[in-house]
Design a protein around this nucleic acid. Sequence first.
DNA 1: GCGGTGACGGTCG
DNA 2: CCGACCGCCACCG
Length: 116
Amino acid sequence: MASSARSSHVAELYRAIYAVVRRIPAGRVATYGQVSALAGWPRAPRIAGNALHALPEGSRVPWHRVVGAGGRLSLARISPHGALTQRMRLEREGVRFTRRGRVDLGRHRFQRGRRP
DNA sequence: GCGGTGACGGTCG
DNA sequence: CCGACCGCCACCG
């Protein structure tokens, strides 16, 4: 039903995406594809990106907990500085990065193998 | 209404 | 590992 109410107002979709991102706890991350799927749109990872890009500054949505496939910081493509902020925030929450600057998804992925 | 674009993802060389 | 392509869906001029 509502999972694919395409003709509905886009604001609802964005809201659904923000709602998903809000439930990602500190110390964990989710990919754009994961977020879109949890929001009911498994084939629209780009929409999740658009939604986060449209976020007003100062919003309580923890956008830094959303990363690209493989744990890459997609934000770096348009804003290296923003990516640095993202990494800093994540590391502050205890998220580990690999030498190549990727989040260790095996350990921090949201709703995945919960480490002991 | 159309073509180009993008904080994506997956495949191929 | 990296770059090039393609598929996907909403946004923008």
